[in-house]
Amino acid sequence: MKDWPLWEVFIRSSHGLAHKHVGSLRAADAEMAIGNARDVYTRRNEGVSIWVVRSADIAASSPGDKEPLFDPARSKVYRHPTFFQLIDGVKHM
């Protein structure tokens, strides 16, 4: 059982539209991973839908690439749409 692969678990709550990452667990196959996720992560009525994906199948950015990946966006404030004049009557923007 220590050879079981690691799975990442995503739960969609009854209030949310998107599945959110909630944690990880070990399981022999996808069916067991969903069952385990149900038992570990939805005991308190947290979810209406479960996704599981093998952790090994997730490609992640490297922490070492943080500067080239994310720093260039810092100086580009114009990408935030905060400079527009809103016409009267537009609310909740």
């Binding site: 059982m1 079981w4 069952g35």
Partner: peptide
Amino acid sequence: GPVIEEDIATAN
């Protein structure tokens, strides 16, 4: 339980 996930399932 043999693994913690199964342990929680059994307790549930």
